[in-house]
Design a protein around this nucleic acid. Structure first.
Lengths: 155, 155
DNA sequence: CTTTTTGCAAAGCATTTGCATACAC
DNA sequence: GTGTATGCAAATGCTTTGCAAAAAG
């Protein structure tokens, strides 16, 4: 991610913290920075490892706590692609939806305004206003580097 | 659900079991029956309770195992609405998407062929074929019986 | 009879929490 | 200094698994 955007996001985090009487710590800074540096959809555990894990003196609990804080502050978004793990991404790139390979777990992003508009239509026809939404298309990507990984079905 | 459909689903289950060399047990029958009788989106735990729980001599493990089997056989579908619990519903009603209230957790169903078509378009424009998809619209329903319940955000 | 299925209890994960210590402001 | 944040380890909640006993075909 562009370093200008990173700075801007960092600044916004500081602002949010200040406005809530919370403190800017080395750990919180690191979590946001690592998230911004990740261009994929990371789990808390993966982020913990990328930050340096135990060696760097950061605990998983802090990673989880900070991620919740970031989501709550609107700086990060949380996803669940059905494998039981919560994944995170920066909210800076704006809204988009996902195409996920059921075999290898790879993720592609897309955005379709036509679909979004129809969604709003569906909701408003029932008297609702959408506050959030999630659209996931599951495929089998069949790329050469597509190997079964997260598909342990079959009893 | 219509008892004709129930019979038909039961028959299909027997057929699947036979074709795989699996056995029809009192417990498996009960799980499918309870699922078909549920018109909402039930968790494994809720189903376990509805079946009669320990009193009726059925274990949670069996409920989980049977649900996995049903999903695998295409007789049930699994959902995750972001509260960390897997929910199930019969696949007999055909495909549909969901509107979920973030406050009280109530769920409404809808189906929009226009959206479905656009989804297929998005996927095929990238060379993918959709094998499954999930669309969830989150709202605040503001009904009189809407009370916060599953929303424990805020750090 | 053979093989699958069950129930139980224990294990497994991802995530959260309690609490004493460390640190930001 | 004061109150918040951290790390650790223990706890939690959902789900899965190992195994001996029970039951289906």
């Amino acid at each position: 991610m562009d370093s200008t955007v990173i700075d801007e996001q960092m600044a916004r985090f500081r602002q949010v913290l200040k406005s809530r009487g919370l403190r800017l710590t080395r750990q919180r800074e690191k979590v946001l920075f690592a998230l911004l540096k990740s261009d994929d959809h990371v789990s808390a555990e993966e982020l913990y490892v990328r930050i340096g894990g135990r060696e760097d003196g950061i605990g998983t609990a802090t990673v989880y706590r900070t991620l919740r804080l970031l989501v709550d502050a609107g700086l990060a978004e949380s996803r669940q692609f059905g494998d039981g793990v919560q994944r995170f991404e920066s909210a800076a790139e704006g809204h988009h939806d996902h195409i996920i390979c059921r075999e290898c777990g790879k993720v592609w992003e897309f955005d379709n305004e036509e679909i979004e508009q129809l969604q709003r239509q569906v909701a408003s026809s029932r008297g609702f206003e959408i506050i959030d939404h999630r659209l996931e298309l599951y495929v089998r990507c069949k790329r050469s580097d597509c190997f079964p990984e997260s598909s342990e079905l079959n009893s």
